[in-house]
Structures are given as C-alpha cells and as structure tokens.
C-alpha cells in the first residue's frame, strides 16, 4: 500500500507511460509481429502507429499490464529499500511457495519478481536470506493465445525498466531522507529482545525494529538461557508484543521530543 501511495502521489506513472508505449510497439514490430499477425489477420506494421482505437485495443492490454507491473516492481523496490532483509523475509512468508492459480497479469510472474528483488538487493547491499530463490514455485501462465502474447510483451517491457525503477526508488529515498536499516541498531534491539525480553529502550526506526524481530524469529536458540518450554511455545506472541511495543515506545519518544 505504501509503495502504491507514493507511486500515485508522486505521479511516477507519467515518467514511464511514453517509454512503455514505445517499448510495447517496438517489441510487437521487431520481435513478435508474426504471432500478432496470426491473431489479427490482415494487419500491417504501419497500422500500429495509427490512433485508430480498434488497432490500439489490440495491444493496449500489454501497455496496461506493463505499466501495472512497473508499479509493482517499484513497490517491491521501495519496500526493499525501506525494510531491507525483513522485506524479503516477509515476502517469502506471505507469498511462498505460490499464490494459487494463474499469475496475476498486473504483476511480473513470481520468478521474475524474485529475480528483480535479488538484483535490487545486490545493488542496495542487502543480504539475501539463504534459500530465498528456491522458496517459490513457478506460476501458471495464461493459455489464451492473445493474452499469452500480450502479457509476454508486457513482461519484456517492464523487465527493461527494472534498473530505472531502482534508481527512481534511490532518488526518491535520498530526496525524502528515508531511513535505511542500520545493522548496529538492529543488533542492539535484537539483544534487548533476546537477553532481557524487553522492547527497545530508545527511539528506533521501524526498519531496525522489524529486522531485529525477524532475526529473533528465525533464531531457534532464542531464550535458551531462560530455558522454559512455555516461552518457546509463545515465542511468536512474545515477539509480536516486543515488536509492537517497541514501535509504541519509539512513537512516545518522537511525540515527546517534538513537544520540547
């Protein structure tokens, strides 16, 4: 939701509309013409550049899907920038091995989404959790010929924008001075969760709190020093409390700081 709100409020779609339209037409003319012609008998390459609404309707879905896919890629990249490793953990937790049924055409397929995330994580110097890539199963592609062709074109076009979208996220984050995950802070919060079973003592950022929470959640040895089964049974609930309370403590510090 956050990424979509940013995409909407900053009118980022406008930056890519022309590029995507040109990309779709170029792909149709140069690489997919034979398939297109089979589905649209009697078409001529020159027709594609016309404003004829009937001709436009034959390729417009590819444009719409490429634009939607670009927005989704942007959202993934922004989520990754903001929440670092914790975004990848949450992504895996929520979507692996796959959402059932055919892929959603407004998203890159899951294989490509993972590829983009791994690429962006490398650029942003974010560690990729072990086994992340293999957590996901392939999604069903559409079988209807026209849809199959057009979504494949949308995939190709949105794929070419990945680098531009990473840069867009980085520029936006720099302009807005967005916080990035700080490994020292993550480690400090993690120690508070792990050693004392208390929420954070100071004001911390959301990303540091979430990353500390995920690290503790994935640590099977956590609270071994306390060594009581009841603690391990309630691990998720306790961690949830510590994470949410840490956010409340940080809000408290933020609000009282402003009033000084």
């Amino acid at each position: 939701m956050l990424g979509h709100s940013v995409w909407e409020s900053e009118r980022f779609a406008a930056k890519f509309e022309k590029q995507i339209e040109n990309g779709v037409l170029k792909e149709l003319k140069n690489s997919r013409w034979e398939e297109y012609e089979l589905l649209n008998v009697g078409s001529k390459v020159s027709d594609l550049d016309s404003d004829d609404m009937f001709v436009r309707s034959t390729w417009l879905p590819a444009y719409t899907w490429a634009l939607l896919q670009s927005e989704e890629i942007f959202c993934d990249f922004l989520g990754l920038y903001l929440f670092a490793e914790s975004y990848l953990h949450a992504f895996s937790y929520l979507t692996s091995p796959s959402t059932s049924g055919q892929r959603s055409l407004g998203y890159p397929n899951i294989t490509r989404r993972i590829h983009h995330l791994v690429y962006a994580a490398t650029v942003m110097k974010i560690s990729i959790p072990a086994g992340f890539k293999s957590d996901f199963a392939k999604e069903e592609e559409p079988t209807e010929p026209s849809q199959k062709l057009l979504v494949s074109i949308a995939d190709t076009v949105s794929n070419l924008l990945a680098t531009d979208l990473i840069k867009l996220v980085q520029d936006f984050a720099n302009e807005k001075k967005l916080h990035r995950r700080n490994p020292d802070k993550v480690s400090q919060i993690q120690d508070e969760f792990r050693n004392m079973i208390v929420p954070t003592l100071e004001q911390q950022t959301l990303t540091d709190i979430l990353n500390a929470g995920w690290n503790c959640s994935l640590d099977s040895d956590i609270w071994d020093n306390v060594s009581h089964d009841k603690l391990h049974e309630a691990k998720d609930q306790i961690l949830q409390d510590l994470i949410l309370k840490s956010m409340e403590v940080s809000e408290y510090h933020e609000r009282t700081k402003k009033e000084q």
């Binding site: 409390d241 309370k245 409340e248």
Partner: peptide, 11 residues
C-alpha cells in the same frame, strides 16, 4: 524464578 510465568503482554 520461573520467568516464563511472568512474561507480560503489551495489552
């Protein structure tokens, strides 16, 4: 001290 008996909640 059985600390597991004394883990409170935020609610």
């Amino acid at each position: 001290v059985d600390q597991s008996s004394f883990i409170g909640s935020r609610k």
